[in-house]
Design a protein around this nucleic acid. Structure first.
Lengths: 339, 339
DNA sequence: AAGCGTAAAGTTACCGGTAACCAAAAACCT
DNA sequence: AGGTTTTTGGTTACCGGTAACTTTACGCTT
């Protein structure tokens, strides 16, 4: 812990120039001769000068920092989004500050206020649930805001989302194409738009193929692994159990796979499983999980790019950017077993 | 996005007092009559004033913010540590800013410099690997630093660690107590002290029981799920396969469980599995994983408390705090099968 | 009534930078 | 050579707070 902060003034006096000259050198502004530039740079190097971010923010009005607010950093899919944001921020020469709300609304409002007031130039909010609860908190942000979330209502800020509905359609079509006729669905959280959209895709996918969705085949899974386990178990207990299970996210799909194996059945020989999200782990389990890929990293990059465009006032800003989802076929799905 | 930042001066003129008075009210300093206090507070509420963090930091020399630097926010165990840090920071009325290095050294140095220079009052570094690479970067931090990492050399800053060696001893003792005599080990990354300590615990645990560690039973797993899968598979291929497997972390233990089931064997009836870490998922898989609990959240809280002590100059600061590990017995271990 | 102590509020200066404008020196021109 | 431009560097003020000190006002003592 060093305690002699070197300031602009120190450099200036050492180099025999004014603070302003040093500032210009540091910020690569024109109007400085090569000779003095070199001299100043040398002294900066020698003394190990780093600009004071707060001073800079206060005087310049910019922070060269982006903020990303997430509910918590536990879930894999969130860390993927953050990774995307970090990528773009880094290549734009900006720093990224992560802040968690721990699912706490007041904590959240506070964060937005504090961050947007001089700590960051822009804010990327990742709000998989409860978007509307924060809508007004976001309005009083003092910097541009982009939200990564699902919503079907229009919001007063740019939204980045994935095409949950279409992804679900793809998953169902895949299973039907393999000959499955009874397809179970493990639902997510009822309070998220994304989950409802996936359910809608499942239903309409069946209807389009001339099948009637059987309510008995739809079980709540809460997006968790134990939830998926329990849901799958109850599906398998049915007198006429499904030959394929579509889970609303990868985590509950993992639970479903476990339940199936636990019954002494095999994936995909006896029961096929499809997930949703394509978190890294989906490719690391056995059998590797067939899943609907949500472009998590891209959601982070796209959201951050929108933010940059907003910030610089150039480039397009899409009010509602819906990124495509994609079916990744791996080993957990196969032809329906003949009865 | 609001754009009329309310400042101290605005409040002051509205209330007919000086900026200083408002500042004192905001910071709950004495020397203000109840009457004016109420008046000022009302106007603050009305106008929606929030202090400008940068201005505050610049003038006051404090930021009321702690920084936590992590290599990446993907791995579960890191998010647990962060959660612990957040808990303590929150109850101390401080904000927590998370910054990732994406495993990049230069990125890292930059972060430390920037954060410690006016953005945060203290820094908690989580460096599961490559601690020494950053040691000198940390020395030039301008704020107190506490490191959560494993190292057996002494460092110029407080260290928080878990007792990997003893945890491994517990795991081995548990398996031996169940009658297992051939215990496989899936190693972690050779470049981390923690991994080596766990290996040492495994070896000495066997030796203490009068068994000779068989090098053939030690396989690299790289701390990953596929790594654990491959390692377990090769262990099971042995002419004299182990009846129990101890994995250096939970992730590779998951892989091992999959490999065992894949062979048509059962956990724990045919092969017992023990992990290390006790990430939340360990309790969500089937069978639930017996594992050595590393007090991840506590490492975050303890580290942050040390940081606070350092910051306030009161309370004890332990130079090397080693938190105890604990065996959590769940369903993945059972008596050794009779041959 | 003068003197004094204390509580309440105000003054001044400064934290470390940057914006916007200005001044001096060097280079260019006719 | 003298005036004009360009280049290079400096001045001044200010961003929005806080520390440290001073002033004001009031009640109390003797």
């Amino acid at each position: 812990m060093r305690s002699n902060p070197v300031t602009l003034a120190d450099i200036a006096s050492q180099a025999g120039v004014s603070k302003m000259t040093v500032s210009k050198v540091v910020n690569k502004q024109p109007g400085i001769s090569e000779a003095t530039r070199q001299r100043v740079l040398r002294i900066i190097e020698e003394l190990g000068y780093t600009a004071h971010p707060s001073a800079r923010a206060l005087a310049g009005g910019r922070t060269n920092t982006l903020g990303i607010v997430v509910p918590s950093i536990g879930p894999q899919y969130i860390s993927e989004v953050v990774r995307g944001a970090d990528l773009v921020a880094y290549e734009a020469g900006l720093d990224l500050l992560i802040s968690t709300t721990q699912e706490d609304t007041s904590h959240e409002r506070q964060n937005v206020g504090r961050l947007s007031r001089g700590l960051v130039d822009g804010l990327l909010m990742v709000l998989p649930r409860s978007l509307d609860r924060y809508a007004d908190a976001l309005k009083q942000a003092e910097v541009p805001v982009v939200v990564v979330a699902s919503a079907n209502t229009t919001m007063p800020f740019p939204l980045v989302d994935a095409d949950h509905y279409h992804g679900a359609r793809l998953a169902v079509a895949h299973l039907l194409g393999l000959g499955h006729r009874r397809v179970g669905f493990i639902a997510g959280r009822r309070d998220t738009t994304a989950s409802l959209e996936r359910l809608r895709g499942y239903r309409e996918g069946l209807l389009t193929a001339g099948l009637t969705p059987d309510p008995v085949l739809i079980r709540p899974g809460e997006y968790t692994q134990p939830g998926g386990f329990a849901a799958a178990r109850s599906l398998l207990d049915l007198p006429d159990p499904p030959t394929a299970i579509f889970a609303a996210n990868d985590l509950s799909a993992f639970g479903a796979m476990e339940a199936i194996k636990d019954r002494g059945l095999r994936v995909p020989d006896d029961v096929s499983v499809v997930g949703f999200d394509d978190i890294p782990q989906a490719n690391q389990v056995h059998p590797a999980l067939t899943t609907v890929r949500q472009p998590l990293v891209e959601m982070g990059t796209a959201g951050t790019r929108q933010l940059l465009n907003l910030l610089h006032g150039v480039g397009p800003v899409t009010n509602r950017l819906v990124l495509p989802t994609e079916l990744i076929v791996r080993a957990s799905t196969g032809p329906a077993p003949r009865t």
